[in-house]
Amino acid sequence: MSHVTLTALRKVYANGFEAVKPASYAITPGEFVVLVGPSGCGKSTMLRMIAGLEDISDGTLEIAGRVVNTLDPADRDIAMVFQNYALYPHMTVRKNIGYGLQNRKIPKDVIAAKVAEASALLNLDDYLDRKPSQLSGGQRQRVAMGRAIVRDPALFLFDEPLSNLDAKLRNQMRIEIKALQRRLGVTSIYVTHDQVEAMTMADRIIVMNAGRIEQIGAPAEIYHTPATTFVASFMGAPPMNLLDGQIAGGAARVGDHTVMTDAPAAPGPVTVGIRPEDIVADPNGPLTLDIAIVEELGAHRLLHGTLAGQQLSVHVGKDSPATTGPFRAALKPGAVSLFDAGTGERL
């Protein structure tokens, strides 16, 4: 059974621009789904269509068994956390959190109880009578969360909620949001352009590019078996190395180097994908790289160089020797992904 179902959902603007190409997927109850992609890929538009802030051009949207295509945002039983929090600057934290309930004509004592419950959950008890301008970024973020959870919605929507925070706070809030979602068990859709957020928070990731869904899958699946070169290069930091190769005699080759012996592909040009951490130092290895730069990161090192004249990066442990110049290496088993050189689809 699914909780949110999109069927060929599509968005075309008045000027003819197709922001979201027909998209279909279903989200199960309690699932945490992350929409990820570069800016302008249509992920926010999709979220806003689900929220009812953007008209749906085509297709149907069901939330908790109801088709909600034409319902007002307030009637869709959703809550949303905005990128800039969108707190009402003239209201206290208490009023901010309670405003949605107040509009639903819920009795005052019930509102007070719910606000108290939410603020306890979010450690906001000391700040209830402050205005948003008197709060820190992380606290504002919590108020925005409080405004969402107090309503007991069927669905949480997050629109890049952490992008205004500094890196340290972002890591902390990431964990808090995830924990809160687990605890409340509310189905959530989370939009971000940050692939680390997507990997760490999601039950399932939806990768979007240019209005199209590139891949839907669990984080590990997305990372290890990217469906397209776009997904391969978007997920992971540093991204998967993508090299121009050839299939000849059943083997995949990059320049003179054989990277895969039993390539399941027809002869001809191919794109070879290798994760930086799947290349390991090996004095007798089959590959000879030319390393130009070593980035020291403490726990590990990044080596940047070339293989057969093509740029690539290698991720090695802190114990692995790292100097510029020739670098003998081998590949871990199953390290190589092959993509169609023309379409970028996984072979």
Partner: peptide
């Protein structure tokens, strides 16, 4: 005035 404010208000049922 940030757009999100009217959006948040709409979701809050105003």
């Amino acid at each position: 005035i940030p757009e999100e404010l009217v959006e948040a208000a709409r979701i809050d049922g105003a």
